[in-house]
Design a protein around this nucleic acid. Structure first.
Length: 1044
RNA sequence: GCCCUGGUGGUGGAAUUGGUAGACACGCAGGACUUAAAAUCCUGUGAGCAGUAAUGUUCGUGCGGGUUCAAGUCCCGCCCGGGGUACCA
């Protein structure tokens, strides 16, 4: 029984984490009651970026932060009453653990993948083959390799040999791009980059090529696909993994470049359409671009633009079609036509060959591209036999395609693959979208590589040197030139054998094999002992978030297959069954803002377009979605004061005031989250923004000014503020470090006063005393100011105020999204446990709904669960104390018990825990009604409840029932079906599908026995109105339907 | 954009295989007990219409179509929310 490894974040365990943990705890306790030996461990994925960032900010060592966070996590986990075997705890950041992570890396480094045997093998074997016959006969998963003979190999220098081997290793070095932020001097994670600039500070981010480690997961692509058929994961999750691996069958074809020796290799899944290939598109980073370009200026400019775009942007942004012509041409090998070679961002270097043949007649993106740049489009498929088929469907009859004419598409694909092969211009090929996994991070808080460099080539350290422990460094900041902070410790860096690798491993290194360590956590000789792994084998049930669907799960499956190849584990797949628990989401508070320039433009657009478009009105206003309109008179001299009122309106009201809006040319701005989308569509992105704010800032719809200032002290303390009774405004200073610690004013925010809570005024003196330490110059330069006269605080427009700040805050709103510290919406379980106890908390989390469904954390039903537990308790204790009898139970009581046993047993097996809680409630309500206090019933029920509410169950077991020992190992009650057998069934009788009456019949009655009585029924007669029924449907034990 | 996933009363959700939609809770309303509060218990509660009432009847599972004796469930086309998208974990 395994739970996904938590990362011990500084925010502590939030209410979302335990959802899966509680489910697995119930399951493992249940299996224990059923007599199984259950291994249910827990540990920590302790390396990671947040601890490192915290270290940069505070100077605290990540090891220390991690230690503190783990202690807190364990305290919280224990408070919920989990049955973890802490003697088996593992932590990825423990040198005793990462010793083996490093060891596994070494094994990957010294392995290659034999595609003939479909198996990883020692690299020494390959060396022997090279020395004997070169690499021409070797069938291996490799990079692009030049062929060499045995003579070549033996004449190679050590360095050349190492370089050649690098193309075969399962862990290898190559150059790859990272998100490089020159201003911060650091490499950024994808989610630290937004719109081409760093999230912190807004500095430009570019791609930088660095030599990095990769794992050859692509060698296992097919096995990772095949393995999916053997495991019990949700079909959707398997589908996600299949898509990630992205197998596609097609052909690679070479296109000859005009006037040059080289050809361009393209991969296509549609070789049939080659007669319609009217141009080629290369990825802007394609190595051939530099060589063939004659159109230097435009290409260079375009390449610079693409540098600033993230891969996701490049794929996602299908609206903007962009590209540049290289000036070079190639030849279509079948039509013989000269076709231009372009570069465009929608072609990615990392996928396929980094080049495509564009067939604008049969590919949407190619079509958009050709249309925009006026390139030729030749129709090659007649789809008239397939009405409704889209451009990309592989359907139709070939036309304008030489020898393919008249063939159906699938046949044409097959023939074309053969033809390409015959003509020696390419071959049929299976391509995978999946790429090798980047394994280098330019970070401190991760596993160091057990590697030193000699002559610029890497060599692994001997096992005796493991673990290579993280060195102490004087600062956790990046070095500024792209190296990780490890490079700061030069004493550590330089060894007699050469300099060390300074990058560290990514998060998934430690988490790809941790479940094996649980089986044998204290083994110092091997990562997992043979006996242990043969006894426990694999994970029977794995629970965790769907967000890990590909990343972690695919990587660990890959590692496991490698272990299998090496003979270290007995199974091909690590996880037999996997359940994705849904996310418990947080409710975030957010603010929307928009520039005043844009506000005016929106106003015009709304007047001219939106109010005239019935669809927009309908989509946004119906369904009682009232929305806000901010009324503002937009003159050229926009002043805050002129924002005069905010209205809540509905569709009818909008219609009635439409003309007034138009004639007065007042700007009306929609600012519900739904409306925001329409503002977006009116203006495009980047014109309206939103930002998360601390949950507690907004209370009862009012924004607390003192809390807002505590949240953004910098902004408020150093800025002048303006207040006129209606509007409270604050210019915002963006925190961009510059010479002499100057900061730049970027924008301002406005709050409607009616939405603010001024009750706590301590911020005024706090702000003033803070400011007095600074030069008044800065305050004078501010656009607006507030003053204090006498003892009363009065806010007035500053005399120097003439320029209006650029950004207007529109409103705050709530949104349900992922719980995370950065979104200020984290809720901890501690308070609830303190108030209601762990049992209530456990049961409530289960009661919230199906385990795999995501839902926001709302505590509405908490009381009901708590009340249930009290009611259950009262089955044992009445006012006079313990009140249990030894009488024999009645038939009704037994029925309640056995109905519940069956329900709980079935529902736990199918992991439907929310319905279990309901079943307990029903049983308790029914037994209360029956006034049942019988030991024989209550004892069994206590065992049933024990996995869900272990504390109360244990208490009742030992003290109320007086049982010896713990309920944890009690035998699970045996279900007796005979108790539940019914002789009659109350049939619902419907007329034309609508139930009108119910009639009781013995269950063994057939249709013939039932029909006369049903038709004679008074109700049925009424609906028949004297007519004969058309049809009589009888489903035994379910329903009767009379069709009239 | 692409992939995945969800949408049912005022709220969380139930309906396991196409067979009585709204189980079980929360909330709300009314009542009992109590000096009072807490706790506990009882009754009602999808919406509309008719009826003093029992009850009857129409509508109703995001929207629009379809299949079926029967659709929350299956099919087709949309809309909206959430997650992932390769360096957050």
């Amino acid at each position: 029984m395994l739970d996904m490894f938590p990362y011990p974040s500084g925010a502590g365990l939030h209410v979302g984490h335990p959802l899966g943990y509680i489910a697995s705890d119930i399951y493992s306790r249940y299996k224990r009651l059923k007599g199984y030996n259950v291994l249910h461990p827990m540990g920590f994925d302790a390396f990671g970026l947040p601890a490192e960032q915290y270290a940069i900010q505070t100077g605290q060592h990540p090891a220390h932060t991690t230690e503190v966070n783990i202690a807190r996590y364990k305290e919280q986990l224990d408070a919920i009453g989990f049955d973890y075997d802490w003697s088996r705890e593992v932590r990825t950041s423990d040198p005793k653990y990462y010793k083996f992570t490093q060891w596994i890396f070494i094994q990957l480094f010294h392995s290659w993948y034999n595609t003939e045997l479909q198996k990883a093998q020692p690299i020494e074997d390959l060396v022997k083959v090279f020395a004997k016959e070169g690499n021409t006969q070797v069938k291996a998963a490799s990079g692009k390799v030049e062929t060499f003979t045995a003579t070549d190999w033996n004449s190679y220098t050590e360095k050349q040999q190492q370089e050649a081997l690098m193309d075969y290793r399962l862990a290898y070095l190559k150059y790859a791009d990272v998100n490089w932020c020159p201003a911060l001097g650091t490499v950024l994670a994808n989610d630290e980059v937004k719109d081409g600039v760093s999230e912190r500070g807004g500095h430009p981010v570019i791609k930088k090529s660095m030599r990095q480690w990769f794992l050859r997961i692509t060698a296992y692509a097919q096995r990772l696909l095949d393995g999916l058929d053997t495991v019990d994961f949700a079909e959707s999750l398997k589908e996600q993994q299949r898509n990630w691996v992205g197998r596609s069958e097609g052909a690679s074809v070479f296109f000859k470049i005009d006037g040059r020796e080289e050809s361009i290799e393209v991969f296509t899944t549609r070789p049939d359409t080659i007669f319609g290939a009217t141009f080629l598109v290369l990825a802007p980073e394609h190595p051939l671009v530099a060589e063939i370009t004659t159109n230097h200026k435009e290409v260079a400019e375009y390449q610079t633009y693409v540098q600033s775009r993230s891969e996701r942007d490049r794929q996602a942004d299908v609206k903007t079609v962009s590209g540049a012509f290289t000036g070079a041409y190639a030849h279509n090998p079948f039509t013989g036509e000269e076709i231009p070679i372009w570069i465009a961002e929608y072609v990615l270097m990392g996928y396929g060959t980094g080049a495509i043949m564009a067939v604008p007649s049969d590919d949407d993106r190619d079509n958009a591209f050709a249309t925009k740049f006026g390139l030729q489009i030749i129709e090659v498929i007649d789809k008239s036999d397939y009405p409704g088929a889209t451009r990309s469907d592989k359907l139709g009859k070939m036309i304008n395609s030489g020898f393919l004419d008249g063939m159906e598409v699938p046949a044409a694909i097959t023939l074309m693959c053969q033809k390409v092969d015959e003509m020696c211009i390419g071959q049929g090929k299976i391509n995978y979208r999946m790429r090798d996994a980047g394994f280098s991070r330019q970070r401190y808080w991760g596993e160091p590589f057990p590697v030193t460099y000699k002559d610029d080539m890497p060599y692994t350290l001997p096992e005796s040197a493991l673990p290579v422990e993280l060195p102490e460094v004087d600062s956790f900041k990046p070095t500024g030139d792209g190296d990780s902070p490890l490079a700061r410790n030069t004493e550590w860096l330089n060894t007699p054998d050469g300099p060390r690798e300074t990058d560290t491993m990514p998060g998934y290194a430690g988490s790809s094999w941790y479940f094996l360590r649980y089986m044998d956590p204290h083994n110092d000789d091997f990562f997992v002992g043979n006996d242990a792994v043969n006894y426990w084998q694999d994970v029977d049930l794995y629970t965790g978030g769907a967000e890990h669907a590909v990343g972690h799960l695919l990587y660990s499956r890959f590692w496991h297959k490698f272990f299998y190849d090496k003979g270290w584990v007995p199974t091909q797949e690590p996880y037999k069954k996997l359940v994705n628990q849904g996310m418990i989401q947080g409710v975030s508070e957010k603010i929307n803002f928009i520039t005043i320039e844009d506000l005016k433009r929106v106003g015009d657009k709304i007047i001219n377009e939106v109010l005239e478009d019935p669809n927009i009105i309908k989509n946004n206003i119906v369904n009682n979605n009232l929305f806000y309109i901010l009324v503002s008179q937009c003159t050229n001299n926009v002043k805050v004061k002129q924002v005069i009122e905010a209205l809540r309106i509905n569709a009818d009201l909008l219609n009635s005031i439409k003309d007034e809006i138009k004639s007065n040319r007042v700007t009306r701005l929609f600012f519900d989250s739904k409306i925001k989308i329409d503002v977006l569509s009116l203006l495009g992105e980047n014109h309206i923004g939103s930002q998360n704010i601390d949950l507690t800032i907004v209370e009862n719809g009012k924004t607390s000014i003192s809390k807002l200032i505590a949240h953004w002290p910098f902004i408020f303390r150093n800025s002048a503020s303006y207040f006129d009774g209606n509007i409270f405004s604050v210019p915002i200073y963006q925190q961009i470090p510059g010479p002499k610690d100057n900061y730049v004013t970027r924008s301002g925010v406005y709050f409607e006063v009616s939405s603010l809570d001024f009750s706590d005024s301590s911020w005024i003196s706090d702000t003033l005393s803070y400011r007095s330490k600074y030069d008044t110059e800065q305050i004078l330069n501010s656009e607006l100011d507030f003053r204090i006269e006498d003892e009363t605080y009065e806010f007035q427009p500053s005399k120097s105020s003439s320029i209006a700040p650029k950004v207007m805050l529109i409103n705050t709103f709530s949104e349900v999204e992922k719980m995370s510290k950065s979104k200020f919406n984290v809720v901890n379980p501690d308070e609830i446990i303190a108030k209601y106890g762990a049992d209530t908390f456990r049961m409530y989390e289960m009661f919230l709904g199906p385990i795999e469904q995501s839902k926001p954390w709302i505590t509405n039903g908490l009381d009901g669960v708590h009340k249930f537990l009290r009611k259950f308790w009262r089955l044992f204790y009445s006012e006079g104390g313990l009140d249990i009898t030894d009488e024999a139970p009645t038939k009704d009581e037994l029925k309640v018990l056995h109905k519940t046993i069956k329900k709980i047993q079935d529902d736990i097996e199918r992991l439907s825990f929310n319905t279990c809680i309901s079943a307990f409630m029903i049983a308790t309500n029914e037994l209360t009604d029956l006034k049942c206090r019988k030991r024989a019933i209550l004892k069994e029920l206590t065992i049933l409840l024990a996995p869900f509410a272990p504390h109360i169950a244990e208490e009742l077991w030992q003290n109320a029932l007086g049982e010896k020992g713990t309920v944890v190992y009690a035998p699970f009650p045996k279900f007796d079906e005979s108790v539940l057998v019914e002789s009659n069934f109350n049939y619902p009788v419907s007329i034309n599908g609508k139930v009108r009456v119910t009639i009781d019949f013995p269950l063994d009655y057939t249709q013939d026995q039932v029909q006369p009585e049903v038709l004679a029924n008074e109700q049925v007669q009424r609906w028949l109105e004297g007519k004969e029924p058309k049809k009589f449907i009888f489903v035994k034990g379910r329903i009767i339907n009379v069709v009239v």
